[in-house]
C-alpha cells in the first residue's frame, strides 16, 4: 500500500518493504535499499546509496522531524483516510484559518451577520504588519473565534461561515 509524506509543498507517495538486510524504499519506479539503526536518544545511523548519515530524528503525531547533514527537515505522514476525505470534500471555503500566528487588531463582523464576498471581516497583525481578512464568498457568519487583542497560532480557526445551503435557506 502506498503512503504519502508531505515535505514542504510537495507530496511523495512511497512504499516501505523489508529486504534481506534492512528495508527498501519504493518511490516511483525506483527501489532504494537502506539500513537504519537507532543509536541513543533521537539519534540514528542511516546507510543509503553508499553513504552513511548520522541523523537526529523525532516524531510527534504524524510529524517526523529529521536533522540530516546539518539541516532540519519536517515531514508529515498523511494518513491515507484523511488524505481521501480532504480530496473528496473539495474546496468549499466555510472556514478561514490563520495563515500565520498573530493577534487580532479589529473584528468587523458579528455572528449571524450577512457578509458579501470581499467584505472585511477582521484585521490581524503578524510580523508587525496588518492584514485584513476578507470573506471568501457571500454568506452568514457562523463563528468569530477570537476577540480583539487575543493571539492565535498558525492554522487556528478565525472565522466560520454557515454552510452555503443553510445561508441560502435562511435568506429565502
Amino acid at each position: 500500500m502506498k503512503s504519502t509524506f508531505k515535505l514542504g509543498a510537495a507530496e511523495h507517495a512511497i512504499e516501505l518493504s523489508r529486504a534481506a538486510h534492512g528495508y527498501r524504499l519504493h518511490l516511483g519506479d525506483q527501489v532504494i535499499p537502506f539500513e537504519m539503526e537507532s543509536c541513543g536518544a533521537h539519534r540514528a545511523r542511516l546507510r543509503i546509496a553508499g553513504h552513511t548519515h548520522d541523523l537526529r530524528l523525532i516524531t510527534a503525531g504524524d510529524d517526523v522531524f529529521i536533522q540530516l547533514d546539518g539541516e532540519a527537515h519536517a515531514l508529515r505522514y498523511v494518513d491515507p483516510l484523511a488524505h481521501f476525505e480532504a480530496t473528496a470534500r473539495g474546496g468549499a471555503a466555510d472556514t478561514i484559518r490563520a495563515p500565520m500566528p498573530g493577534s487580532i487588531v479589529a473584528v468587523a463582523v458579528q455572528e449571524g451577520e450577512a457578509v458579501t464576498r470581499g467584505q472585511a471581516l477582521l484585521v490581524m497583525e503578524s510580523m508587525k504588519m496588518e492584514t485584513t481578512i476578507t470573506a471568501p464568498r457571500d454568506g452568514v457568519i457562523a463563528t468569530v473565534a477570537y476577540e480583539k487583542g487575543q493571539t492565535f497560532e498558525r492554522d487556528a480557526l478565525l472565522v466560520a461561515l454557515q454552510p452555503a445551503a443553510d445561508a441560502e435557506g435562511g435568506a429565502a
Binding site: F5, L57, D62, V64
Partner: peptide, 12 residues
Amino acid sequence: LHALLAAAALST
C-alpha cells in the same frame, strides 16, 4: 530526499 523519506517511513 531519498534519505529523508527512508528515515521518515521507517519512523512511522
